[in-house]
Write a protein that binds this DNA or RNA. Structure first.
Length: 830
DNA sequence: ATAGGGTTAG
């Protein structure tokens, strides 16, 4: 035992040794004197306990104890209280054993009994606390509060509420210390009705002005989604502290009302309430969910100014913010500054790299984690599995799956879902099914993951089967499940069945949401039901569901010809009126829409508005110019793209090479083709070859033939046609005949091929054959084609005018006429 | 009494 820090000479000198069972010798003056001294030591014990100098207090206790002096219950009580403050289970147990040794009278002391229950409860020793509680001679508010508290902390929320009921039934009145725990249990169980009952109890007992109770009420209503009630309690509080503010902010945040959460933070600053770590964490999480970069950065500054940025939790909230807003560099900065990185920080950084599609950095971060002797947890594996699925990296996905099996992580529903989804995204439906079957418990999300896999490939039969099977196994479908069923039907072309499911889900009490409508809009358009899609788009707005950019993109894709320019314009107007963010995807489909609807100038206007342009946007603009016959503009955009350092892909080259072909830019076209293969490592498609063959054919080169011979595709009619056109020289007639023979099998009625062959005969002065060919064309009823696009536009115009005899949309007609003229011009030039 | 990371549907 450690020696005492102050002398005990008077005690050691005269301590009674003879009568140890009766440590209180009768009233001699000497003992009176000693008792006074002991009392001062007892006071010292209590004082030291309250100061947190527990070891010192214990040392005195043990020393006094060894001299067999009676130590009062209050002294043990103070010591236990000290252990409660310190959550020092070890020392508390020592004191408990001392108490037991001291005999029945102390163990059965009501005060000590209660203190012991409180001590074990606060140290989360549920079993011990309950055992002692069951043995207490007399229950009281304190022991009940301790039991309810430990149930609450360990997540046994039902037991906490049952405890409260029993306590009240046994005639104890809940005080303002139990109520917060009771309310926490109500919130956690989403039992708002019970919570309202407790609220009534609070009012009856007059606790409503207690900050602790009222803050808990705010939290309880917030967790139950009753924001109005939460706000009402908050507004009526006479006094609020930082926890109250944090509670209302978290309430908004947890219910997705991030703007309101931010407003609370602003109000809080106006009232000069000092923010705490929790404040910053809630605020940063709200800004992260809104991708509100500016507000988030201000939060970061405020955290630094208040020295709240140093802890782990604020650090991870900052990484989350920068990760969600795509500011990888900022996230890295915060991450590197964190002194003690825990698994959450590493996982957030990992998620940041994965969202940035940087698998290389993500995997190198993982090996750094191992170097730091950290073990991957379920979150790490979920992230990597999802990332592997996104880039369809089956090898990585399988490795992840194996790691999860080896480390017993497949029992985690999130891990299992991500693995199943990974196999689905890698088109391994067999593995998807096998992993699903191998799992012992399956939750709703897991079922939904499997349904989504079958829905994605349009297996509506299997999706439906699973839909019934899950219900047989007692899992009721939610909106996500229904959405997959609808998607499965639409992917399989079963429009009627999809619409039936859509109306059915509501009668099953499942409310269709934004995604349900988006699936319908996109699916209906893909099945050619444009009018129905528009109806759904209007319906959802009437229901008060705000379309987002995905649903707008879906409805924009319905505008694919000149007749739908009106609708396209209306949607553009909607986007502008609702101040919808013109993100890259939305802008791309807007550019595409205007191009397809014949207004290339408007296309260009939208294109120019976007400051940071990504490849799909460039591709849409290039393709737009290409279909309008503005080939030099298309090539100009291609140059702009290269100047901006954007890497073109296969689609870009398809449009640019086609533009070169139309402009007859032979050298430029060939250069681009070569750079595509050597510089950008793009494997040429048959379309790419087609353009180059056509270019080569135009200058009458035999390189065209060589290219066709060496290309890894079977030449199609367009390529053969191009070659045929080039056969205008003497001696090429045999080749021309051969080509024409093959072509007539592929395209027996293509007038262009007849013309080309006739030209070849003419070059060889074989006039009889030319004449024969002409009569054959006449016989077959083949007329010289004036150009495909011309006919197409003419047909569309006819349909348009036929459908709208009022000619109220004369703007559109003029637009089409202008385009028609331009198309004809191109044809004439060609 | 309040607080940080992961899974399913477009």
């Amino acid at each position: 035992m450690a020696s005492l820090q102050f002398p005990l000479t008077p005690l050691t000198h005269s301590s009674p040794t003879s009568n140890s069972t009766n440590p209180h010798p009768q009233s001699t003056t000497l003992h009176k004197h000693h008792q006074i001294l002991y009392n001062s030591y007892f006071k010292h014990i209590s004082f030291a306990s309250k100061q947190g100098k527990l070891q010192e207090a214990i040392n005195i206790l043990l020393e006094l104890d060894s001299q067999s002096f009676e130590i009062g219950a209050d002294v043990y009580g103070d010591l236990l209280q000290g252990c409660v403050y310190d959550r020092n289970l070890h020392l508390g147990k020592q004191i408990h054993s001392r108490i037991v040794k001291k005999g029945e009278s102390l163990v059965q002391n009501g005060y000590i009994e209660t203190k012991l229950v409180v001590f074990y409860a606060k140290c989360d020793q549920l079993d011990v606390a309950l055992k002692l509680f069951s043995r207490v001679v007399e229950q009281n508010v304190f022991s009940w509060a301790a039991v309810i508290g430990v149930y609450c902390r360990l997540g046994f929320l039902e037991n906490a509420l049952l405890g409260f009921c029993e306590m009240v039934e046994n005639g104890f009145e809940g005080d303002n210390f139990v109520i917060p725990n009771v309310l926490k249990a109500c919130g956690g169980l989403l039992m708002v009705e019970f919570g309202k009952g407790v609220h009534g109890y609070v009012v009856k007992m007059g606790f409503e002005d207690c900050v602790f109770v009222a803050s808990s009420l705010v939290d309880m209503y917030g967790k139950c989604g009753e924001l109005e009630d939460a706000r009402k309690v908050f507004d009526e509080m006479p006094k609020r502290n930082v926890v109250t503010w944090n509670s209302i902010m978290a309430s908004y945040s947890q219910n997705g009302m991030y703007e309101e959460a931010i407003r609370v933070f602003v109000d809080m600053r106006k009232e000069d309430v000092q923010p705490s770590v929790v404040t910053m964490v809630s605020f940063l999480s709200a800004t992260a969910n809104l991708c509100a970069v500016e507000e988030g950065k201000q939060g970061h500054s405020i955290a630094i100014l208040n020295r709240l940025d140093e802890g782990n939790i604020v650090g991870t909230s900052l990484i989350n913010l920068y990760s969600k807003t795509g500011l990888v560099k900022e996230a890295e900065k915060v991450f590197s500054k964190m002194s003690k990185k825990d698994i959450v920080a590493w996982n957030l950084m990992l998620s940041c790299y994965l969202q940035d599609q940087n698998m290389e950095k993500a995997l190198s971060l993982c090996s750094d984690m191992l170097l730091e002797r950290l073990k991957f947890d379920s979150v790490t594996m979920t992230l990597i599995a999802t990332g592997a699925g996104d880039i369809q990296n089956l090898k990585l996905g399988k490795e992840t799956h194996c790691y999860c099996i080896r480390n017993n992580l497949m029992f985690d529903m999130a891990v299992a879902s991500s693995i199943i989804d990974m196999y689905a995204k890698c088109n391994k439906i067999y593995n998807t099914r096998r992993v699903f079957s191998s799992l012992q418990t399956k939750d709703l999300v897991l079922w939904n993951t499997l349904l989504a896999a079958y829905a994605e490939i349009g297996s509506s039969g299997e999706t439906l089967k699973l839909f019934y099977q899950m219900q047989l196994e007692g899992i009721p479908p939610n909106v996500v499940t229904w959405n997959s069923v609808i998607l499965a039907f639409l992917k399989n072309g079963q429009v009627k069945e999809a619409m039936t499911s859509f109306s059915e889900m509501e009668s099953f009490g499942v409310e269709p949401n934004l995604i349900t409508h988006t699936i319908l809009i996109t699916g209906l358009v893909q099945n050619g039901c444009v009018d129905e899609a528009i109806t759904i788009f209007i319906e959802m707005q009437e229901k008060g569901i705000k379309p987002n950019s995905v649903s707008v993109v879906g409805i924009l894709s319905a505008c694919k010809n000149r007749a739908s320019l009106q609708l396209g314009k209306a949607i553009h107007g909607y986007v502008l009126r609702h101040e919808m963010h013109m993100n890259s995807v939305l802008a791309t489909s807007m550019v595409d829409m205007y191009a397809k609807c014949g207004n290339i100038n408007q296309s260009r206007k939208v294109f120019d508005m976007i400051l940071v342009k990504q490849l799909p946007l460039y591709n849409a603009m290039i393709s737009g110019y290409a279909i309008h016959g503005c080939h030099s503009e298309a090539i100009a955009i291609f140059r702009e793209l290269k100047n901006e350092g954007v890497t073109p892909d296969s689609i870009t080259f398809t449009h640019v090479l086609s533009a070169c072909r139309h402009c007859g830019l032979i050298t430029e076209g060939l250069e681009i083709f070569v750079s595509m293969v050597t510089e950008y490592d793009v494997a040429p498609s048959i379309e790419h070859y087609g353009c180059v063959v056509s270019l080569l054919s135009k200058c009458g080169k035999f390189e065209a033939f060589r290219l066709v011979k060496n290309m890894p595709f079977k030449p199609d009619s367009r390529i053969l046609g191009s070659l045929l056109v080039s056969c205008r020289e003497h001696n090429e007639i045999d080749i021309a005949k051969h080509l024409a023979e093959n072509l007539s099998k592929l395209e027996p009625n293509n007038s262009g091929n007849y013309t080309a062959l006739s030209n070849a005969y003419a070059a060889n002065e074989m006039w009889d054959e030319v004449s024969d060919l002409r009569s054959l064309m006449k016989e077959k009823g083949i007329k010289k084609n004036p150009g495909c696009s011309w006919v197409q536009i003419g047909k569309e115009l006819h349909v348009f005018v036929a459908n709208d005899r009022s000619h109220s949309q004369s703007d559109e007609i003029y637009a089409m006429l202008a385009l028609l003229r331009r198309e004809m011009q191109v044809f004439v030039n060609f």
